[in-house]
Amino acid sequence: MKDLIQIDHLSTYFNTESGKVKAVDDVSLRVREGEIVCIVGESGCGKSVTAMSIMGLVEEPGGKVVNGQIHFDGKDLLQLTKNELRTIRGNDISMIFQEPMSSLNPVLKIGEQIMEPLIIHQKLSKKEARERAIQLIEQVGISRAKQIVDSYPHELSGGMLQRIMIAIAISSNPKLLIADEPTTALDVTIQAQILDMLRQFKEQSNMSIMLITHDLGVVAEMADYVIVMYAGKIVEEGEVVKLFESPQHPYTQGLLKSKPVLNQRQDELYSIPGQVPNPLELTESCYFHDRCEHCMDICRTQQPKLKEVALQQKAACWLYEEALVHG
């Protein structure tokens, strides 16, 4: 399969009053055509900022992509002008967000909001766009599309709104759909429906999905390939079955251990000790060292690089570097 998007050494920093935050720090990843890549990690690990960097929507001033390349369709997205990027946004790459309730404009009709990208990207007339909007609403499984098109966001439920967001996102047949925690705000039955729908659209149109989540259940169900992020860096990545079967990085191991298992009553759920480090106080080290049960001296002073530790599986951890050295 061909690479659809390839990110090389992406770094996005935020200048805050108390100092520089490296929200995304030298991250490289790729998504192939028709593939679902999941980015997993705790809040604040840089998953969403990675997505926003691709979209060119990192909030300025303050946030800035300081380094890297994002190759998409033969172009480096970071070198494009704002206008060129705008023709890609919502067209070749589209995005859905975590909070469907607040992601739609409260004073505009659902129809108008679906029609907007159709009019700009597909150059449809208002009338055609409206017809297409009704089709799209039906396509995302909402009945009474003709009424919904003229209703306002507050008149629909969260699940319906997320379907509308999906309708907007798929309206221009994107090559890449970025879904930033699309089901976090929804209840479990709706979650499954939304994920099914995403997968179904993926199958139909061979689009790729970059799914950002902290829910390992979602990962197991959806992903082809998994990327685990911690404090702005990729700590482990690999093909989904392998990663779940034999996680290499202690952080991934911890994450998988802290996942509740269905039908098993545990007295206490495992949790990784300690807390995510303060991004302002990071020094050259493995950022996970003070929470890691295998912490060694080198972990405190040097940063491990992402290395292939098994077939189709990479991890950034000194445990494996040592193993290589002492073979």
Partner: peptide
Amino acid sequence: KQDYIRTARAKGLKEGK
């Protein structure tokens, strides 16, 4: 700062719109 402004930008709308 609202989410729906981010959505509007993500759709590829012009800044004026």
